Simulated assay, not measured.
Amino acid sequence: MQRALLPFAALVLAACDPGQGREAFTDSRPPPSLAPRFLAPEGWAWGVVQAEGQPQLRYGVSSPVGTGTRAHVLIVPAYGESAEVWFETARQLNGQGYATWVLERAGQGGSGRYLSPHDLGHTEGFEAGADAVRSFIAGVIRPADDKPLILLGAGDAALTVAMAAQAGAPADAVILSGPDFRVQPPPRRWESLASRLGLSRLPAPGWTAWSRAAPDDYAAGLASDPWRGKVRHAWQTANPDLRLTGASLGWTAAQSRALAQVLAAPAVSQPVLILGPAEGTGAAQDFCGAQAACRYVAITDPGNALHLGENSHRTLWFKVITDLISEESHQVRAVTPSPPA
């Protein structure tokens, strides 16, 4: 019995003394194995903001080349993704005339990490991420009245974006891509006890350290395109500061709380577009039905990372998104008064 308690005691001590966090990382090295379409768009720039009560947040931005900006798109990546995974999408959005911003949540991507080991994902709550999105729009992007801002949240970041919109984020439309609205299983007795004892930084069951031998997103079934499915693993292999594997008990509990809050909150005022699987929509479909204006588009891609899907699926995904952005851009321009002569 005593021998069995030793590993648990070690984890408890680690949670009580989580070690040093890490500041934001803004100097990623391009993996030599990636094609140019997966590298940074022309003019890409990194920045760092300090959110209250959180580690530093990293963001990146690129603008259309040779044309004016028609709209702003703010992307919040899914768990485990860094902004680099969205470079191909940012490049394509720039080509449509849209400035593209990618904001990584605390503890994710190149943003600051809460604790050590740095490949253990942790958060103090999704509410802080939603507040950071609102502050980032108001304090950094500050879009002009004639340029709409579109919020896009992927995976579990769809909860962060939905919470930001419900709290009044100044966006013209909300897009949820492959939203992770899964209902988490109730915590086991020891997990609840650990949280009550302030040990939420313990790894959730099944956590393992990052490994080069781990399957990439294609092999894991998250991405249906074999080349796009290598992108995240390639960037993490070349840049240890971007590595992230499983989550802490605190992250899992925070995601459950966020889902309950999002489903119980009043409808958002903006148009909502949800792109998800044809089957098993569950809570995401329920959320859509509760909104004042929501469209659910079924994408038959078997992977949940729709931006990393094979062309037969991704082309539709990108068209639906850009059609909405274009529509919002035309509507904003139609109602924005011209300056006096």
Rank of each mutant, 00 (worst) to 15 (best):
residue 1 M to A: 11
residue 2 Q to A: 13
residue 3 R to M: 05
residue 5 L to W: 12
residue 8 F to S: 07
residue 15 A to N: 07
residue 17 D to L: 13
residue 21 G to M: 05
residue 21 G to W: 03
residue 25 F to Q: 01
residue 26 T to K: 09
residue 27 D to I: 01
residue 27 D to T: 15
residue 27 D to N: 14
residue 28 S to P: 13
residue 28 S to Q: 11
residue 29 R to T: 12
residue 32 P to H: 05
residue 33 S to D: 09
residue 35 A to P: 00
residue 37 R to S: 15
residue 40 A to D: 04
residue 42 E to M: 12
residue 45 A to F: 00
residue 48 V to Y: 08
residue 50 Q to H: 12
residue 54 Q to M: 14
residue 58 R to E: 12
residue 60 G to S: 14
residue 62 S to I: 02
residue 63 S to W: 06
residue 66 G to H: 00
residue 68 G to S: 12
residue 73 V to A: 11
residue 74 L to I: 09
residue 79 Y to D: 03
residue 92 Q to Y: 07
residue 92 Q to F: 11
residue 92 Q to S: 10
residue 98 Y to F: 15
residue 99 A to H: 08
residue 101 W to Y: 14
residue 102 V to C: 13
residue 103 L to E: 12
residue 103 L to W: 06
residue 105 R to S: 15
residue 109 G to A: 09
residue 116 S to C: 02
residue 119 D to C: 01
residue 120 L to A: 12
residue 122 H to A: 13
residue 124 E to I: 06
residue 127 E to K: 01
residue 132 A to L: 05
residue 140 V to Q: 14
residue 140 V to T: 15
residue 147 K to G: 02
residue 148 P to F: 07
residue 150 I to A: 09
residue 155 G to I: 01
residue 159 L to W: 02
residue 162 A to G: 07
residue 162 A to C: 01
residue 164 A to F: 05
residue 170 P to T: 09
residue 172 D to H: 07
residue 174 V to L: 14
residue 179 P to I: 12
residue 184 Q to R: 12
residue 185 P to V: 08
residue 187 P to L: 14
residue 194 A to V: 04
residue 194 A to L: 08
residue 195 S to L: 15
residue 195 S to R: 12
residue 195 S to M: 15
residue 196 R to D: 12
residue 198 G to V: 04
residue 198 G to I: 02
residue 202 L to R: 09
residue 202 L to A: 11
residue 203 P to S: 05
residue 203 P to H: 05
residue 205 P to S: 02
residue 212 R to L: 10
residue 213 A to K: 11
residue 216 D to I: 01
residue 219 A to W: 01
residue 222 L to C: 01
residue 222 L to M: 13
residue 222 L to Y: 15
residue 222 L to I: 04
residue 223 A to K: 08
residue 223 A to Y: 09
residue 224 S to P: 04
residue 237 T to W: 00
residue 239 N to Q: 06
residue 245 T to R: 15
residue 245 T to D: 11
residue 246 G to D: 11
residue 247 A to K: 07
residue 247 A to G: 09
residue 248 S to V: 12
residue 252 T to Y: 01
residue 254 A to F: 00
residue 256 S to W: 05
residue 263 L to M: 14
residue 266 P to D: 13
residue 272 V to Q: 00
residue 281 T to G: 12
residue 283 A to K: 04
residue 287 F to K: 07
residue 288 C to E: 02
residue 289 G to Q: 07
residue 292 A to G: 14
residue 299 I to F: 01
residue 299 I to G: 02
residue 300 T to E: 14
residue 302 P to T: 07
residue 303 G to Q: 02
residue 306 L to F: 15
residue 308 L to M: 15
residue 320 V to H: 06
residue 325 I to Q: 04
residue 330 H to T: 10
residue 332 V to C: 03
residue 333 R to P: 00
residue 334 A to R: 11
